[in-house]
C-alpha cells in the first residue's frame, strides 16, 4: 500500500514537469526499492500510476460536459461514449506502470538485494 501511494504521488509530481513516460521511471524505482514479488510489483505499478491518470481524466471529463471526450472516443475508437477513453487511458498508463514495476522488482532481485529477497 505504501508503495502504491508513493508511486501515485511521485508519478503525479514528475509528470507535471517531465514527459508522460517519466511515470515508468517512478514505478521502476519504487519497485526496485521495495517490492515483495513480481505480481505485487505489477499491481503496485499498475494501480499507482493508473489511479492518477484515471482520476485526472475523470476530473476533466466531469468538469467539461463530456461532448469533447465523446468526439475523441469517436475519433480514436470509432464509438461515441465517455467510458472507453477513460478506460483506455487508465489501462495504457497502468500497463506501462505495471511492467516498469515488474522490471523494477527483477532488477532489485538481480542487483544482489539478496537479504531482502530471502525475507520476502
Amino acid at each position: 500500500m505504501r508503495q502504491i501511494i508513493a508511486i501515485a504521488v511521485l508519478s503525479l509530481l514528475v509528470q507535471l514537469v517531465f514527459p508522460w513516460w517519466s511515470l515508468a521511471v517512478v514505478s521502476f524505482a519504487i519497485c526496485c526499492w521495495r517490492s515483495p514479488g513480481a505480481g505485487r510489483a505489477f499491481v503496485y505499478g499498475f494501480v499507482g500510476v493508473g489511479i492518477v491518470w484515471l482520476l485526472y481524466a475523470l476530473m476533466i471529463q466531469l468538469r467539461t460536459d463530456g461532448v469533447f471526450v465523446g468526439r475523441m472516443s469517436e475519433l480514436l475508437f470509432k464509438t461515441n461514449g465517455g467510458v472507453l477513453p477513460v478506460l483506455v487511458t487508465t489501462l495504457v498508463s497502468g500497463l506501462v506502470g505495471g511492467l516498469a514495476g515488474v522490471a523494477g522488482f527483477f532488477v532489485r532481485q538481480a542487483s544482489g538485494n539478496q537479504i531482502a529477497n530471502r525475507i520476502s
Binding site: 509528470q15 508522460w20 491518470w53 485526472y56 481524466a57 471529463q61 469533447f68 487511458t89 495504457v92
Partner: peptide
C-alpha cells in the same frame, strides 16, 4: 506508445491527462 504508427497517433502522450487531448477540454 511514444511514436506514431502510420496514421495512428502516438497514444502515450495523446492519452496522458497531463499533456494529451484531455488538456484540450
Amino acid at each position: 506508445l511514444n511514436r506514431p504508427w502510420g496514421v495512428v497517433p502516438a497514444f502515450g502522450p495523446l492519452l496522458s491527462p497531463f499533456v494529451g487531448f484531455w488538456q484540450n477540454a
